[in-house]
Design a protein around this nucleic acid. Structure first.
Lengths: 340, 340
DNA sequence: ATGAAAGCGCTAACAT
DNA sequence: ATGTTAGCGCTTTCAT
């Protein structure tokens, strides 16, 4: 493995200086087309390839962005990362990936790692554990572009891309009400995370608007998982009031609800079920599961666009944008009492 | 945003030289514990943080690995990337992600980009389009550690991590045979990709072993998707021979098969269905779908371990390892004629 | 155990 | 349009 060729080699071979070579390679206008061609030809001949590390050190820009997500095992995040990478690649940015694994300390470490790697910015979605946000303040303090999406925190003074989760909860609930459901349960998380709380607020608002009572016996707060959906449903079925619909905090929980209802020989959609996330499997299960689409791809794209806009500005934070995407109701069999 | 503190600042503040500071920060043995502590304390006081770009340029190691996968939209790859990142992070490596989007030219560009970024190695799974592999040869030529997984190419002289796909096809088929199915169909891709061909060979081998005929009318080659599963099943049902089981080239195709059978009012598992990949949804659908698990996590882990081993060697390619993981049969309702 | 100094490969004033 | 020359922040060999 022979030493890699550098711009010095090209310069020497051509009897010119490195600055000229650098200009030719970087399409700097103040250079004659003739020399540019000469340089490009020689570069190709010598199989030259830039060393971006050297370039970054010198220029102060790494053309790399760091992305922190809880885990790629969650489809939503994989999808968002997909879009971010796809979009940013078009503009010559590379993506450094870091998973927090839903751990606060890992997340703190991730920010540190990415900052040390001199990323030009960070796009992050918070871990379930995260309460403090000093690590993110540091990113802003260093003048790097920070964007948080989906799982955000109101004290972070940076642009945000998220779903209108209040609307998501409202939409799901209103849909149930329109289908004639009146005694609606909700199995959600007990964690104080904005998106889940917002969904619940939307649920409350829709009930109030329709003059329906909020039945506390039908509200379960715990985990979000298939298991939690099953347990939650069993608990609800024990209460004095029987629900005619149950909302799952996410699609996994909704699957649990479906399984528990089937086990109790309660027909669906006579009793309705709806979830959040519109996971791939939602359209395959029986009955197909109504859900609220979270627009992972759109979210990723918006994050990327926002980042590109921020890095272009002298002060990335001169105006802090907030992109709120509208949730999309996906009606399927699990809530289709009435034809549509 | 005040200039970041460098090791020069620490050196100046302590009246020592940068080399000493560097030694202290990097746990080089030849330094007194006293000065080390002094340096660490001052570093903390000045809120020092290394510039890994500078460190990389100087040392020649970036502590970054590049990962190329077709797309994070495919759960298997998201899962594999998850494991790679998780494992490598423990050893202080960062992960640069690049998606080929199933395009050959994108993949070539990805290798170029990662090489320019001076990654210490590349872990890749090939795009469906890839036939030529000169871009990967270049990685090897540069002495960087290359590992391909799952979608590999036999002409790449580098370590490989993959599933025993022959065994996967064999296992699935043998399971069906043991359940008493005799007229077994197979809906697979018409693309010449090793893993799919191997699965088919395993299918053939299992039939032969059991002295069962291979019924050409029940073999469909086209795409892999729900749609393809539906169309393929419809085509098979038109033939003179009625199948008593159909294998889907992947779980999506198997879902299509299930839907088509249901539509034709053919009972499952009276007619059996099995897929490959063990997607998340496989255990939620009705009936739950038997499948062959591809061990995405294990594959990612093995890739990471292999990489760590390679970078430790003077010549990464002194022995080219091949890790072949055993597929795991996941028996579910869609093939459970007999109790187990 | 510590210091001095030469790079790593490239960029970007500034000068010509 | 091209050349000259400092760095960018760190590592590492060679002295001491």
């Amino acid at each position: 493995m022979n030493k890699k060729t550098t711009i010095y080699d090209i310069a020497r071979a051509l009897g010119i200086t490195v600055s000229t070579v650098s200009r030719a390679l970087n399409n700097v206008p103040t250079i004659s087309e003739a020399t540019r061609q000469l340089v490009l030809a020689k570069a190709k001949e010598l199989n030259y390839s830039v060393n971006k590390i050297a370039s970054s050190l010198s220029s102060g820009r790494s053309n790399t962005i760091g992305v922190i997500v809880p885990t790629m095992q969650i489809h939503f995040f994989a999808e968002a990362v997909h879009s971010i990478e796809k979009e940013l690649k078009k503009h010559n940015y590379s993506l450094l990936l870091y998973q927090s694994n839903e751990s606060y300390s890992d997340e703190v470490n991730g920010v540190k790692t990415l900052l040390e790697a001199q990323v030009d910015g960070i796009i992050a979605s918070l871990s379930l554990e995260t309460q403090q946000i000093a690590h993110f303040q540091e990113v802003i303090k260093q003048g790097k572009s920070l964007i948080t999406f989906d799982r955000t925190h109101q004290d972070i003074a940076a642009p945000v891309v998220k779903l209108n989760d209040f609307e998501a909860g409202y939409l799901a609930t209103k849909h149930l009400i329109e289908q004639g459901y009146k005694k609606i349960g909700f199995i959600t998380t007990n964690k104080e995370i904005a998106i889940f709380q917002d969904r619940f607020s939307g649920f409350e608002a829709a009930l109030k608007e329709a003059d329906l009572p909020q039945l506390d016996d039908l509200i379960v707060r715990g985990e979000l998982s298939i298991e939690a959906g099953i347990k939650g449903t069993e608990q609800i079925l024990q209460s004095s009031i029987q629900p005619d619909a149950i909302i799952g905090g996410d699609d996994f929980t909704a699957v649990g609800i479906i399984q528990a209802l089937k086990a109790a020989e309660i027909a669906i959609p006579a009793t309705g079920v709806i979830g959040f996330a519109n996971q791939t499997f939602s359209s395959f299960i029986t009955p197909t599961l109504s859900s609220i689409d979270q627009q992972a791809n759109k979210m990723g794209e918006e994050c990327a666009k926002l980042f590109l806009k921020m890095v272009k500005q002298k002060d990335p934070y001169e105006d802090i944008e907030q992109v709120v995407l509208d949730p999309i109701l996906i009606k399927r069999k699990s809530t289709c009492r009435i034809d549509n």
